[in-house]
């Protein structure tokens, strides 16, 4: 059992939890993820690691309420226990293997979309702790959905915020911001790390390909075990089949088949979404989720 040490609501549907998990806290690195199962009947939910403290032996996770399981998880309070919390899973960021001196010479731009800000944060933080400066863009639909602004602001060299509706920061999407930085402000980057919804990562990658900036993305497809056993998370990268759980979750964004990934994600959304909406709407649920007749 893993105790919830802290809980914060980051927006209506986004929750942060700091969880006591000694083994994970001791060995995790930026880029990795955990699988959380709240109780006997819950799903195994893959969640990116947002922060960790080796001293407190805790791992911080951030999740959005998208289905029945995450809804139940959001109902847990500080002091409650999570039944299963396993990790760290997946590979840590590839750039972690580079000497810090080399990283310092690099210009890295992080692009975070919505809840994707959570996995971006520990990466920027790690670099900041080593004295490596990195820029960061946080993009969201509106002001309420901008999360972890304060935290990222502290560790990023420059932080840019964009909202689709212009309610906060620059009006537009993250690509508008990248274009402005590179084309108008004359910035140049050696590496882009984009984490967010698939559609965002797809378009960032199309742009960075044009701009010839190598780009890393982090994928979060539905998984069951997260250790390479089920193959549910398979994704085409450069024409090869990879398992996001063991070969990723980070991949060369210019090689990922996003269209296939989006179709695959849809499959599970169907099942999950149905369940959630049925619960929400009860007997009145006759479609509307786009999946039921």
């Amino acid at each position: 059992m893993y105790e919830i040490i802290e809980k914060r609501q980051l927006s209506d549907a986004i929750v942060l939890m700091e969880v006591k998990a000694e083994r994970v806290a001791k060995s995790c690195l930026p880029g990795q993820f955990v699988i959380v199962k709240i109780d006997e009947k819950g799903e195994r939910i893959p969640l990116t690691i947002c922060d960790y403290s080796r001293e407190r032996a805790t791992v911080t996770i951030v999740f959005q309420i998208v289905g029945a399981s995450t809804k139940r998880m959001a109902a847990l309070k500080k002091g409650d226990f999570i039944r299963d919390f396993v990790g760290p899973l997946g590979k840590s960021c590839e750039w972690l293997s580079e000497p810090v001196e080399d990283l310092k010479k690099k210009k890295i731009l992080f692009v975070a979309g919505g809840v994707g800000t959570a996995p971006v944060y520990p990466q920027v933080k790690w670099l900041w702790e080593q004295g490596v400066a990195a820029d960061c863009i946080i993009g969201a639909r509106n002001k309420n959905l901008v999360i972890l602004e304060e935290e990222v602001h502290k560790v990023a060299d420059n932080l840019y915020i964009t909202t689709d509706d212009g309610s906060y920061g620059m009006k537009g999407n993250v690509n508008d911001c990248i274009k402005k930085l590179v084309r108008e402000d004359g910035k140049s980057y050696d590496l882009v790390v984009a984490i967010g919804p698939l559609i965002m990562m797809k378009f960032v990658c199309l742009l960075t390909k044009e701009l010839e900036i190598p780009t890393i993305v982090s994928l979060n497809p539905i998984m069951v075990d997260g250790t390479g056993m089920c193959g549910a998370c398979r994704v085409s990268v450069g024409g090869q089949v990879k398992f996001a759980c063991v070969d990723g979750p980070e991949f060369d964004g210019h090689l990922v088949d996003f269209d296939q990934a989006m179709k695959r994600q849809q499959m599970y959304k169907t099942e999950e979404g149905r369940k959630y909406l049925k619960e929400q709407e009860g007997a009145t649920h006759h479609g509307g989720c786009g999946h039921c007749d």
């Binding site: 083994r23 994970v24 060995s27 299963d84 919390f85 396993v86 990790g87 760290p88 899973l89 250790t227």
Partner: peptide, 8 residues
């Protein structure tokens, strides 16, 4: 919940 090779 211990993935040997990852957790330890």
């Amino acid at each position: 919940n211990v993935v040997v090779g990852k957790s330890v």
